[in-house]
């Protein structure tokens, strides 16, 4: 299943994310973090990648039925794609604003829903692309340079 576009020196993998599964929430990001450590990526880059990927992963847990986190590491950059099947985002511009959140009270009580997730991804990524279709799902794709 290797993508023909991937350069010879690249490593890629994919993890599943279950919507609403709080027990395993964050696991994909933490596995990604471990892999980056073994590849010897600098701590600063690892921190940026894992902060951003954790936010994207949590959004799937919170707002979607299920999704995947896939990543590709090359000597130049790390690209992460988090895509889901879920409610989708109607107005991406609005969702990107700091403090904007549609999180329910229960979710807020669990400590999420500050409306800082997407802005945080933007802050930590060198490139970011979000596409979404209401009722179908959302794809968040970002990369961090090494």
């Amino acid at each position: 299943m290797r993508c023909p576009m991937a350069s010879e020196t690249s490593f890629q993998q994919e993890f599943a994310i279950e919507g609403g599964d709080f027990n395993n929430a964050g696991r994909a990001s933490s596995r990604l973090r471990n892999i980056l450590k073994q590849i010897g990526i600098s701590p600063l880059v690892i921190r940026r990648v894992s902060t951003a990927s954790y936010e994207a992963e949590m959004n799937v847990v919170l707002y979607a039925r299920r999704g995947t986190l896939s990543f590709m590491v090359t000597p130049e950059k790390i690209t992460i794609v988090v895509e889901d099947e879920g409610q989708g985002i109607a107005d991406i511009g609005l969702a990107m604003q700091e403090g904007y959140s549609t999180a329910s009270r229960e979710i807020r009580e669990m400590g999420f829903g500050a409306g800082m997730g997407l802005p945080n991804i933007k802050k930590n990524a060198d490139e970011l692309e979000i596409s979404s279709e209401v009722g179908l799902g959302t794809t968040v794709r970002f990369s961090v340079k090494i």
């Binding site: 993508c3 991937a6 690249s10 890629q12 994919e14 599943a16 299920r66 999704g67 099947e85």
Partner: peptide
């Protein structure tokens, strides 16, 4: 895994 497979590839 995975029941649902991402459509995405790089």
């Amino acid at each position: 895994e995975t029941r649902f497979k991402g459509k995405n590839s790089f």
